[in-house]
Amino acid sequence: MSSVSESSFRSSSVHLITPGTRRTTLRTDDGLTIEAVYEPCTTGSAPGAGSVDGTTAIVVAHGFTGSVDRPAVRRAARVFAQRAAVITFSFRGHGGSGGRSTVGDREVLDLAAAVAWARSLGHRRVVTVGFSMGGSVVLRHGALYTSPGTAPATEPHARTVPAQRGRIEAHADAVVAVSAPARWYYRGTAPMRRLHWMVTRPAGRLVGRYGFRTRIDRNDWDPVPLSPVEAVPLIAPAPLLIVHGDQDPYFPLDHPRMLADAARGSAELWLLRGMGHAENAADASLLTRIADWAVTE
């Protein structure tokens, strides 16, 4: 499925754009503008450089209240760029992107726009890496946007994913979910109870807007989108990596285990001792491991 029409991009090859970083604005299928940054691979295939793949692009999906310019996102981009080209972007309602956050629902359209941009730039292989809310989005995107010749999954009333248009594919060839929830409406930890207050209460949304620079949609989900654990078995045959820390204050270890069980043996699970939550807790060593997995799977 395509998130953007082919006419939204100028045709170019990876070779022509690799000299430097490019910042642009993408348009989603529901008409929002999304800020995005492309960074070419920074490392050649010299001895000791590790696995480097010039045909692959890694698309990074940040967590709730993040953005393309947050330090943790920029750190992830720098590490990933040592192995492959990288696209980062701000979800709707975050940073310089338009609209309001739906906290994981229509954000799948934002990710699809970024994946389609990567393919329009000539990358034949695209890997999505999502953190926390972004982790739930890459899982749903992997289930809903499928490779050519594969029947796509659908959500109730087909509200979230539009009909295909244009010829630019927006599917991921591999998926990495870091610190992702397995199910919606989880309130089992204090940080998640605070997050639900921020999302569901008018005073909380004011805190989100002025304290975290995140504009949050006031409407409830209708219909409720496909949950991460429901999405996981629909991702295969694309490779799936699930990464989670045993010190995650938001989602305990039953979440990654539930996701891995749902994959029925088709996912790889990394449970990391001492790791906290999402991109802020991902150090350079872990990010390098993820990038190496992304370019070799």
Score class of each variant (00 low, 15 high):
Val199Trp: 12
Arg193Leu: 06
Ser136Asn: 05
Arg119Cys: 07
Thr150Trp: 08
Phe91Pro: 03
Met133Ile: 03
Pro156Met: 08
Ala170Asp: 02
Ala112Ile: 01
Ala190Arg: 15
Arg124Ile: 00
His196Cys: 00
Pro148Ala: 15
Asp110Trp: 03
Arg92Val: 08
Trp184Gln: 10
Val176Thr: 04
Gly96Ala: 13
Gly95Phe: 02
Val129Pro: 10
Arg125Ile: 09
Tyr186Thr: 04
Arg187Ile: 04
Ala114Cys: 11
Leu139Glu: 08
Leu139Ser: 06
Gly96Trp: 00
Ala143Pro: 00
Leu144Lys: 09
Thr102Ser: 15
Arg124His: 12
Ala112Trp: 01
Trp184Arg: 15
Ser136Met: 11
Glu107Ile: 02
Trp117Asn: 06
His196Lys: 12
Ser136Asp: 00
His196Met: 11
Gly166Ser: 13
Val127Asn: 09
Gly130Arg: 03
Thr160Trp: 14
Pro202Asn: 13
Val137Glu: 08
Val176Pro: 01
Ala114Pro: 10
His196Ile: 00
Gly166Trp: 02
Arg165Gly: 14
Glu107Trp: 01
Ala114Phe: 08
His123Arg: 01
Thr200Asp: 15
Gly122Ala: 06
Val161Tyr: 03
Val199Asp: 03
Ala177His: 13
Pro152Ser: 10
Gly96His: 12
Gly122Cys: 09
Pro156Lys: 09
Val103Thr: 12
Arg119Tyr: 05
Ile168Gln: 12
Ile168Arg: 10
Val161Met: 07
Gly122Met: 01
Ala114Asp: 06
Leu139Ile: 11
Thr200Gly: 09
Ala114Ser: 15
Ala118Trp: 00
Gly104Pro: 11
Val178Cys: 13
Ser97Thr: 06
Gly99Pro: 04
Ser147Ile: 03
Val161Cys: 11
Trp184Met: 06
Leu109Glu: 04
Tyr185Cys: 01
Leu109Ala: 14
Arg187His: 01
Glu169Pro: 06
Val129Trp: 13
Ser179Met: 04
Val138Ala: 02
Val175Asn: 08
Arg92Asp: 07
Pro191Arg: 12
Arg193Pro: 07
Val129Leu: 15
Val126Met: 06
Val178Met: 08
Pro162Asn: 10
Asp105Ile: 03
Val108Arg: 09
Leu144Thr: 13
Leu144Asn: 05
Leu144His: 00
Leu121His: 10
Arg92Pro: 05
Asp105Ser: 14
Thr200Val: 06
Arg167Tyr: 05
Phe131Lys: 00
Ala143Tyr: 00
Thr200Lys: 13
Arg183Tyr: 13
Ser101Lys: 06
His171Asn: 14
Gly208Ala: 15
Ala203Asn: 02
Arg100Asn: 10
Leu195Trp: 13
Arg209Thr: 12
Leu206Ser: 07
Leu206His: 08
Gly130Glu: 01
Phe91Gln: 13
Gly166Cys: 08
His196Leu: 02
His171Arg: 05
Val103Lys: 00
Leu195Asn: 14
Trp117Cys: 11
Thr102Gln: 12
Leu121Asn: 10
Glu155Gly: 15
Pro181Thr: 00
